[in-house]
Design a protein around this nucleic acid. Structure first.
Lengths: 196, 196
DNA sequence: CACAGTTTAGACTCGGAGTCCAAACCGGTG
DNA sequence: CACCGGTTTGGACTCCGAGTCTAAACTGTG
């Protein structure tokens, strides 16, 4: 994969629509060419094949997640407040890159099988959130969490699944409504608080 | 898709391994034939194509989820106890059909795009769990939940993502360890309970 | 201008999905 | 047993699209 100019990168994001609608394999190289305005031969000059085009798009999203999460984690406040901001920021990435996020989630298998995508999703979300959970436990703003890493992974699933569902399957509710669903769910749980 | 005999159905499940490892598109019809022992021509006699073979496998898993969830929801106890059993039962399906579950999650895009798969995952999990949440709110065993359906979807994501991760990506932890992660997470949340 | 890198059209190869067919097989039924 | 419908299968065939290749044009830089 040759280095991609900013302009070309932007053009390429148009392919995210195709991938989100049809998936990688139902998307012809010619379609990508048509949608992006980049001729097939040029695409092959930059990328090994359409799978690498998809990886490029995934990279853009994962970078955005990385920045969003890193910013939220590094911010002020208790671990709980920062986790709430992680959720908000992550959802904002879905709002910013709806089609690309959808493509990422929908071609999850391919993504998971690509070691560098797995590594990046680890760096972007799982590792920082795991650390945040540990912090919160240490300073008492979270209850003891026996498996912070698995918990972080579960949180990732909570956020992404809900977001993708709203985005792609039943776009009846706005994405913002999810903050009010997910944040209380993961912070307070479903049981009533006797001290509330 | 013609009706499939029990024996043939069992043979077909061998294809789940291929789908889980490589995804549908990297799996050749010939490979399916080799893995299942069913010749290509016979496969095409029963199914429109390999996509329908995948749908068949998805159907088996979704049926199992349906039965597991229905059983847990219908059981005795508070809504919280029944939800805990839903989680356990759902995880048990992952344990029973690891490869097929993986294939389902990995080819999520295809699944989500297939209207009957979306409908079945709604019937199997989302609708019954939404109802369970409503019940729990009504009888006071859950706190008020403004968006029970979105919450149910979020729960589905929590469970499946964690399970798939453990199953496919980092099989270091056993699947059972997830019960202790997910159940407290969704029932109690991450914040400490001052009344605990 | 010459040279290196980029861009592109278009022709080509090749693998695999799905089609088709005809032969065999199988389990009733008269 | 002879027949008939549905099933099973091998193998040949078509067709589409990914990826390759080439050569020409174009771009900017010394």
């Amino acid at each position: 994969m040759r280095p991609v100019s900013k302009e070309m990168g932007e053009k390429l994001m148009a392919a995210a629509d195709l991938f989100a609608e049809r998936g990688l394999d139902a998307t012809k190289t010619e379609d990508i060419a048509a949608a992006t305005g980049i001729p097939k031969a040029t695409i092959y000059y930059y990328f090994e094949g359409k799978e690498e085009v998809l990886s490029f798009i995934f990279g853009v999203v994962l970078d955005a997640v990385h920045d969003a999460v890193a910013g939220a984690v590094a911010g002020p406040g208790t671990a709980a407040q920062r986790l709430a901001r992680v959720i908000e920021a992550h959802l904002q990435v879905f709002a910013d890159y709806p089609k690309a996020s959808q493509a990422l989630h929908f071609d999850l298998g391919r993504a998971a099988r690509a070691p560098e995508v797995a590594a990046r999703s680890n760096e972007s979300f799982i590792a920082p959130v795991t650390a945040l959970l540990r912090d919160g436990v240490a300073d008492g703003s979270f209850r003891p969490i026996p498996e912070p890493r698995l918990t972080a992974i579960a949180l990732l699933g909570t956020i992404t699944t809900a977001a993708i569902h709203v985005l792609a399957i039943e776009p009846t509710d706005p994405l913002e409504s999810l903050v009010g669903v997910i944040t209380p769910l993961v912070l307070d749980g479903l049981l009533p608080r006797s001290d509330a």
